[in-house]
Design a protein around this nucleic acid. Structure first.
Length: 568
RNA sequence: CGGGGCGUGGCGCAGCCUGGUUAGCGCGCUUGACUGGGGGUCAAGAGGUCGGAGGUUCGAAUCCUCUCGCCCCGACCA
């Protein structure tokens, strides 16, 4: 490919709207153009990268036994009503105007409903199972706030796979196979990833892993044990109970006047104590009944953990009226002392607290000197909170917190969708039972952006050869010199003939300009052809990832490159 | 959805507060000359409904009202 005849609109300046490196570099390298908030055009070299990522994903899916199909982006709302997800997705679901359609139509944010509809139509025997179907498709989600370039958009490419299994053992096999395929995909894309336990959330599955890439541009947090023995989404991270501190002399329980001081910060400031000396009392309504959660003042209740502990379907903060009725006080003055006839769950850390401060269940009053066992009893104690700095893994290794982005997610769905949509089959005993499902997603655009986030320098992108828009970049200097151009063209043709993607910069520009562009678009192998080198019978070979320049005879270039590619 | 900011040639910005000739500057682009190993120099050019609508005024990029779009922080996020 000749640069002069191709379309790579590079730019020296960084657009003001771009904040994260991947966004800035994609714009500058001429890969990407924003068309609307959260909707991007992929320009030729950006598109080439996407295609390479898609091909890797496709190869690994096929290798893992998944079968490709293609489902519509336009879907009938009725299908979403069957599972109730029209409500659950809320505003994220993009509805088309009703006019020209008989039924309401939405743009698919994901395809569980559609794929389940297909399978229930054709699968009715255990003999047809298991089967895993996948597609690589454009998804639409009306995100409230698209951001960070291609990392969070309203329209994006996703590989989504769905396994349909007759038994749990079979589901586990499919899940494991997908998990392994994901690892291979990220490895082939040159992406340093971490597989973490994830919260399976409202989707209702019982196991789930996320594939994370550590980067400052991320919007999720992952927690890792320093010794590498544990990694989890912060939503999910399980930590060791805090150790008991040396016991202090118990002070007496005292009621103090704290007028208008309802928050942890206000009360701790007034009473000159640390938030860690306070017991935070949060009142929820779980499936309609009030429940009280206790955590240390500097900790936050993890509602997912609480929900799981309670085995509740709905969980929300109680209304001020409920709180008033339960505690007899305004919001901000609740505490466990004297609180009866309600289920109280304490975080483990609360058990280690001594002479604590907490609400007195009386408006404008708190207690000091509160001790569990004496002033109130902890009947239920569990891990209820989010991990914070200083927490440790169950084996005692300290936690490290890192920002990250999610590039993939695998779920064991169970029968949530097959139950709701009546996707059943007859098992060997002639009994009709719901198909057990798993679902497996990969964000294709995110892989591209994540690779750039984790592989760039001040001059530009550093693509791994596997997904680079071109594999080799020939820079012809002195383009008006016939020997230079004929040599460059010859190398170009030989490399193309050997099956490589080659870009030849044949523009009549100054050398520095072309080198800067070469570094910016980040093709892994660079061949420089110039008058000087040719005078001594050589061209130069350089890796994007290194400053070393190797002199090589023009007719040795193909074999040298093949050696390099064979090693990588 | 709360808070903040920004819309002026392809990109980055100034001008606005305090209204007044042909709306500037840098990058990029075109043409020519010189130049040629890390984003060159000089010269001459092209390119703008100042996001849109309405209003105030003799006169609006500038003041007022409405509106659309975009970015950032937060909340939310199978």
């Amino acid at each position: 490919m000749l640069w002069s005849r191709y379309f790579i609109p590079t730019s020296k300046e960084t657009p003001a709207d771009a904040v994260v490196p991947s966004h800035q570099l994609m714009l500058r390298a001429g890969m990407l153009r924003q068309i609307a908030a959260g909707a991007y055009a992929y320009l030729p070299i950006g598109f080439r990268v996407l295609q390479k990522v898609k091909n890797i994903v496709r190869e690994e899916m096929n290798r893992a036994g998944a079968i490709e199909l293609h489902m519509p982006a336009m879907q009938p709302l009725d299908l979403w009503k069957e599972t109730g997800r029209d409500e659950a997705m809320g505003e994220t679901l993009i509805h088309l105007p009703d006019k020209s359609f008989r039924r309401g139509t939405v743009l698919g944010p994901t395809h569980e409903e559609v794929v389940t509809e297909i399978v229930r139509a054709y699968v009715n025997s255990y003999k047809q199972l298991p089967v895993t179907l996948y597609q690589i498709q454009t998804k639409f989600r009306d995100e409230e706030r698209p951001k960070s370039g291609v990392l969070r958009t309203r329209e994006f490419l996703m590989k989504d796979a769905y396994s349909f299994n007759p038994t749990l053992e079979s589901l586990n096999e499919s899940y494991e196979r997908m998990y392994q395929a994901y690892c291979r995909i990220y490895e082939r894309c040159g992406l340093p990833y971490v597989a973490v336990e994830a919260d399976s959330g409202a989707i209702g599955g019982d196991a789930s892993h996320e594939f994370m890439v550590v980067t400052n541009a991320g919007e999720d947090w992952l927690v890792r044990a320093k010794d590498g023995s544990y990694a989890a989404n912060v939503e999910r991270a399980v930590m060791a109970p805090l150790e008991k501190t040396a016991s202090q002399e118990q002070s007496t329980l005292a009621e103090v006047h704290t007028p208008g001081k309802a928050t942890i910060d206000e009360v701790s400031a007034l009473l000159k104590c640390s938030p860690a000396d306070m017991i935070k009392t949060i009142i929820y309504e779980a499936d309609g009944s009030p429940v009280v959660a206790l955590v240390r003042g500097d900790h936050e209740v993890n509602e997912a953990k609480l929900r799981k502990h309670l085995d509740a379907v709905s969980l929300e903060l109680a209304s001020p009226e409920t709180i008033q009725k339960l505690t007899g006080a305004n919001v901000g003055f609740a505490g466990p002392v004297g609180l009866n006839d309600v289920r109280i769950i304490a975080d483990q850390a609360v058990s280690t607290m001594q002479n604590a401060v907490t609400g007195a269940n009386k408006t404008d009053y708190h207690y000091t000197g509160v001790n569990s066992g004496r002033d109130f009893n902890i009947t239920e104690s569990t891990d209820l909170r989010y991990a914070v700095e200083g927490d440790r893994a169950l084996n005692g290794s300290p936690f490290v917190f890192e920002k990250c982005i999610e590039v993939g997610h695998v779920f064991k769905l169970g029968t949530k969708y097959s139950d709701a949509m009546k996707a059943t089959f007859l098992n060997e005993n002639g009994k009709s039972i719901p198909i057990i499902m798993g679902c497996y997603g990969i964000g294709v655009n995110r892989i591209m952006a994540a690779v750039i986030e984790s592989s760039h320098d001040e001059n530009g992108i550093r693509w791994p050869a596997s997904i680079a828009p071109f594999t080799v970049h020939i820079v012809a200097l002195d383009t008006r010199d016939d020997t230079v151009m004929s040599t460059a063209m010859k190398i170009h043709n030989e490399l193309e003939a050997s099956g490589l993607d080659v870009l030849l910069d044949d523009r009549d520009s100054r050398p520095g300009f072309k080198f800067k562009d070469a570094d910016l678009i980040g093709i892994p192998y660079r061949i420089t052809v110039g008058k000087r080198g040719l005078a001594e019978g050589i061209v130069e070979f350089k890796l994007r990832s290194s400053d070393d320049v190797q002199k090589v005879a023009p007719d040795q270039v193909v074999s040298l490159l093949q050696d390099h590619l064979a090693q990588s």
